[in-house]
Design a protein around this nucleic acid. Structure first.
Length: 235
DNA sequence: GTTATCGGGAAAACAC
DNA sequence: AGTGTTTTCCCGATAA
């Protein structure tokens, strides 16, 4: 069995764990809603539709070269910022459990990239190459939510989150692209997260979206009101 | 000169 | 207890 299969099995096990938690998790008892297909398709529509040849990407992962610490930025696809209902979804804080791995920053970012509610903070620059960028205006909000999700004592800032991202340059999950606020996923990470999302999109995603509903009601992370701007932002 | 962003060392904190 | 992964703080460099 390949390591990918092992990974997938682990994710399935985790998903089952999440589903089981669902049955007795007060956060997940009510108003159980999650990504409806139209939402999924709507965010797909906001990705710049560009022919692959037009967007070579900052780094060709097929090349057998070493992982660069800084990717020379070439010609990334146009960045498009769309208006969305201005509120954030925030997943539950980490809950310890058997076989439950701690959520990692790059996983959170990948989730955020698939969530239309965070499109005003983080977007794919070129999804094909795994390149994404933060929106200058709202990047701090995303960082703040990350910090809250992790249950940090102090407020997470973009600067601190970016420091964590720079650590990924050493381990290879994400590298910095030579463009303002722009980073790039390792393709194997994208592949893994994609498989995970394909499953969680139908099973576990509800967990954190529903949790946000609960969380926002508590007023602990009232980003619903802090994101009322409907202006089109640009990096 | 100012501001925003980036890069990384170092140590603390935390989870597994 | 050991290890891995942030988190936090800090300082300097670079670009706009």
């Amino acid at each position: 069995m390949s390591s990918l299969d092992n990974d997938i099995n682990q994710h399935f096990q985790d998903a089952i764990d999440v589903i089981q938690r669902h049955s007795d998790d007060p956060y997940c008892d009510t108003e159980y809603k999650y990504f409806e297909p139209p939402m999924r398709s709507s965010i797909m529509c906001c990705y710049p539709i560009t022919h692959p040849s037009d967007v070579p990407g900052p780094y060709d992962w097929n090349e057998q070269t070493s992982w660069p610490h800084v990717v020379p930025y070439g010609s990334l696809g146009p960045s498009v910022t769309m208006d969305y209902p201005q509120f954030y979804s925030i997943a539950p804080p980490p809950r310890s459990g058997k076989g439950r791995k701690k959520l990692r920053l790059y996983e959170y970012l990948h989730e955020a990239l698939g969530d239309p509610n965070t499109a005003d903070s983080i977007q794919w620059t070129d999804r094909g190459s795994g390149t994404f960028h933060f929106i200058s205006k709202n990047k701090e909000k995303l960082a703040e939510c990350w910090g809250k999700r992790k249950g940090n004592r102090k407020t997470m800032t973009y600067q601190k989150m970016a420091r964590a991202l720079r650590n990924y340059s050493r381990t290879g999950e994400i590298v910095k692209v030579r463009r303002k606020l722009t980073y790039q996923f390792n393709p194997s990470i994208i592949q893994r997260l994609g498989a995970e999302q394909a499953y969680y999109g139908s099973a576990a995603a509800p967990d954190w979206h529903n949790w946000y509903g609960h969380y926002s009601l508590q007023g602990d992370c009232d980003l619903a009101t802090s994101f009322t701007s409907s202006t089109v932002t640009k990096v």
